[in-house]
Simulated scan of single mutants.
Amino acid sequence: MQKITPFLWFDGQAQQAAEHYVSIFHNSRIAQISHYGEVGPAPKGSVMAVIFELEGQEFIALNGGPGFKFNQAVSLFVRCEDQMEVDVMWERLSVGGETSMCGWLKDRFGLSWQVVPNLLWEMLQDKNALKSQRVMQAMMQMKKIEIAGLQQAYDAV
């Protein structure tokens, strides 16, 4: 059992969200589904919570009702090995949601994600400040992160 587990509040969509996320990431599964009983804010027998794993990381999704909504103050950060993985994650996570700048998106459940290639972090930490600044400038113009555009900015110095 991991020490810290992200706990996500949904309004009746916990199971659908967990199933969606599990379908996107490898090494993922639904571990447990619990249901409301006689006492609870939702009808007896409806899904209360879903424990699921994404890439081995445990999450809990709760059907807590309409009281709280997700916002960009918290996001899930997806590290990608290459452009193909960025493209796949971006496409699958953004279906029914909305895309934003700098690799950020909201999925169809309102949860914010950042889809970022590992290479970006290497470039941003380059000892040559001009290179890292040019990469940052290029990234700030992108919605989905494009490694070719980052590389072009990096090599231009």
Score class of each variant (00 low, 15 high):
residue 72 Q to I: 14
residue 86 V to E: 00
residue 78 V to S: 04
residue 56 G to T: 03
residue 59 F to Q: 04
residue 126 D to R: 00
residue 133 Q to D: 13
residue 19 E to M: 01
residue 18 A to P: 08
residue 44 K to C: 14
residue 146 E to N: 13
residue 127 K to V: 06
residue 121 W to G: 15
residue 78 V to P: 03
residue 139 M to R: 05
residue 66 P to A: 11
residue 71 N to G: 09
residue 124 L to T: 06
residue 13 Q to R: 10
residue 46 S to L: 04
residue 116 V to T: 09
residue 146 E to R: 00
residue 122 E to L: 07
residue 75 S to C: 09
residue 80 C to T: 10
residue 19 E to W: 01
residue 79 R to I: 06
residue 117 P to M: 05
residue 50 V to I: 06
residue 146 E to F: 00
residue 50 V to N: 02
residue 60 I to Q: 08
residue 92 R to K: 15
residue 134 R to T: 09
residue 34 S to P: 06
residue 83 Q to K: 01
residue 121 W to T: 12
residue 67 G to T: 11
residue 112 S to H: 03
residue 50 V to L: 06
residue 44 K to R: 14
residue 95 V to H: 11
residue 116 V to A: 10
residue 98 E to F: 04
residue 46 S to H: 02
residue 69 K to A: 14
residue 33 I to C: 12
residue 127 K to A: 13
residue 128 N to E: 12
residue 15 Q to T: 07
residue 138 A to F: 01
residue 105 L to D: 08
residue 124 L to D: 06
residue 115 V to N: 07
residue 41 P to G: 13
residue 144 K to F: 03
residue 54 L to I: 07
residue 53 E to R: 08
residue 73 A to Q: 13
residue 88 V to H: 09
residue 16 Q to D: 08
residue 105 L to T: 12
residue 92 R to V: 07
residue 84 M to T: 15
residue 40 G to N: 14
residue 50 V to H: 00
residue 87 D to Y: 04
residue 137 Q to V: 12
residue 89 M to K: 12
residue 140 M to T: 15
residue 122 E to A: 11
residue 133 Q to L: 10
residue 74 V to L: 12
residue 56 G to P: 03
residue 87 D to A: 11
residue 65 G to W: 05
residue 38 E to L: 13
residue 31 A to H: 11
residue 61 A to C: 04
residue 146 E to M: 06
